[in-house]
């Protein structure tokens, strides 16, 4: 008889372990995203060690030098080494986006679970708050806030959390409501489990894979959002510059010195692209595990 060499049906012999990182479950998108992101992250974290020059040291003898062997990424309008500025600036971008992402995930999960398992009178209130949040123009809020207080890292993080939590809450709410209707939640209720226990021990593990996807997507969105705010002049104030701030500095020379805007732009794009790839990869994985679960 003939045996066709078609792809074997994806079945882990011992059954579906819904662990998050299991071998042979990781697709190429996830790998590519993770590699790019890790490279950027390591480079940014290691800025004090690997940056070739002081990012804030002007050198008026070498103003707006194009990329060369001495300055790989060229120099800016006051002669600062652009590669060093991008590496150091990445720390600001990552700090704001990273802490903002963690904060928005935490707040969003809390609100979403509260909507699913909190007392009934809270439900419409949580729903309305989420609606309002989703309808809010955050760039305008950013402008409003930064015109009142001097923009600093904590203020930016607060803005990130405000802008991001509602999207997380919406997803968590949907999963919580869907799981709440399932028999295992009722079974837990019947053996006497409290709502807090059900939410934390029974339902939260089902939310977790989606949170990982959201975390990657949120981080990507926040890198871009932070860059947008900085580019609009509402970011961390000079001389500390994030990627958006560096682009703002280079904006006036865009016709003559392309590297000043293009290179930090590429940094922003590669970072958010790698994060989106990670998010997509995780989502595809979760989907595969779910469909296998459904097969049984």
């Amino acid at each position: 008889m003939t045996v066709t060499a078609l792809a074997s049906p994806e079945r882990g012999g011992t059954g579906g372990r819904p662990g998050l990182f299991r071998r042979n479950e990781i697709g190429p998108a996830l790998v590519a995203g993770a590699v790019i992101f890790c490279l950027i992250l390591v480079a940014v974290l290691a800025a004090p060690l690997i940056a070739p020059a002081d990012p804030n040291l002007p050198d008026l003898m070498a103003v707006r030098k194009p990329p060369s062997a001495a300055n790989w990424f060229g120099t800016d309008a006051v002669g600062r080494d652009l590669l060093s500025r991008i590496l150091w600036g990445g720390q600001v971008s990552f700090l704001v986006a990273g802490v903002g992402m963690v904060g928005s995930i935490c707040l969003g999960t809390l609100m979403g679970m509260l909507r699913g398992f909190g007392p009934g009178w809270l439900h419409p209130i949580v729903d309305r708050i989420i609606d309002i949040q989703l309808a809010f123009p955050y760039v305008l809020l950013g402008i409003a806030i930064t015109s009142v207080v001097r923009p600093s890292v904590p203020v930016l993080i607060l803005l990130m959390v405000l802008a991001g939590w509602a999207a997380v809450a919406r997803v968590v709410r949907a999963i919580a409501l869907q799981e709440r209707a399932k028999d295992y939640v009722k079974a837990a209720e019947i053996i006497g489990a409290s709502r807090l226990r059900i939410a934390a021990f029974h339902v939260f593990p089902s939310v977790w894979p989606s949170l990982m996807v959201l975390a990657a997507m949120q981080m990507a969105a926040m890198i871009v959002f932070e860059a947008t705010l900085s580019f609009l002049g509402m970011g961390v104030q000079p001389p500390t510059a994030s990627w958006g701030g560096i682009m703002l500095d280079g904006k006036n020379y865009i016709t003559t010195s392309w590297w000043l805007t293009l290179l930090p732009g590429i940094a922003i794009m590669m970072t958010s692209l790698s994060l989106v790839l990670i998010g997509d990869g995780l989502e595809a994985r979760a989907e595969r595990l779910r469909s296998r679960e459904a097969d049984k």
Binding site: M1, V3, T4, A5, L6, S8, P9, G13
Partner: peptide, 9 residues
């Protein structure tokens, strides 16, 4: 009716 498996169909 057979499916490809790790050790033969």
């Amino acid at each position: 009716v057979s499916f490809p498996g790790q050790s033969g169909p």
